[in-house]
Amino acid sequence: MHPAPSVIIFTTLSGLGFGLLAFLGLDPTPPTGWAAFAFFFVGYALSVGGLLASAFHLAHPERALLAFSQWRTSWLSREAVVAVAALSVTGIYAAALIFVGFHINWLGWIGAALTLLAVFTTSMIYAQLATVPRWKTPLTPLLFLSFSITGGALLSGRVDLSIGLLVFTALMQILWWVRGDRAFAQSGTTLATATGLGDGGTLRSLAPPHSSPNYLMREFVHVVGRRHARKLRVISLLLMAVLPIGLLALPFSHGFAILAVLSHVAGVATSRWLFFAEAEHVVGLYYGMR
């Protein structure tokens, strides 16, 4: 799959922002006043910034309101509805903390549930696609939720919890990669099932339909990016988990904590780039490519 920067930025940042908002909602003693403003500002900047990045990658953003209508069948529509609900509920909760210093406990819980639900709906957009066997697994929502919760713990400054979650997320990521590497073969879709010509003998693509690449090949066949996939996986794990754990294990300082967050975000973004670049769409089979 083509790793579109807008989608990588959106899913990485919004996951992180929603994670932070979830922790702020669950906090029994949340910050108030200006401190609350700072925390919620970061949470909203990340999640709304991500949503805007995704809206601008649409060819017709002026029709975006229609995307709230098909929640009965479409995970993308559900994402839009849940994300707006999460931001609205959390917005009221945040306003009460910032301006009145009043903690509406139950509203925070609802907001946290909705923000995590928003991350879940994002992940299901990918996990629902039978056409991309690497994505079609319950591990995909688990991975997205681990990233979001871990990022939220880091951003809200929970050091001990963060270390545990970083270890968990790294293991989750490794599990997702190991399963993903076998997924295409296990899906059972081959050039033989794609053409129905397998009984006749060995198949190969003799001539593509056109002499130069088309939309389908640009969107679904991304071979170049996989060349350094192994190295990038190691880099991603180092940045996402190993380095932040090391920084957090040192005596606490705000400088190290910020470095840990930045390193984690860079690692997650690398992982998200691989999430798309390594994903093989079954339509590539028709072109003799993956």
């Binding site: 003998g201 190969r204 693509s205 001539a207 130069s212 939309y215 028709y286 072109y287």
Partner: peptide, 16 residues
């Protein structure tokens, strides 16, 4: 590198 939208495309395969 000409490119365009087509609703129908014709592949060719070799069966050995």
């Amino acid at each position: 590198a000409p490119s365009g939208t087509f609703l129908n495309r014709i592949h060719s395969y070799e069966v050995l």
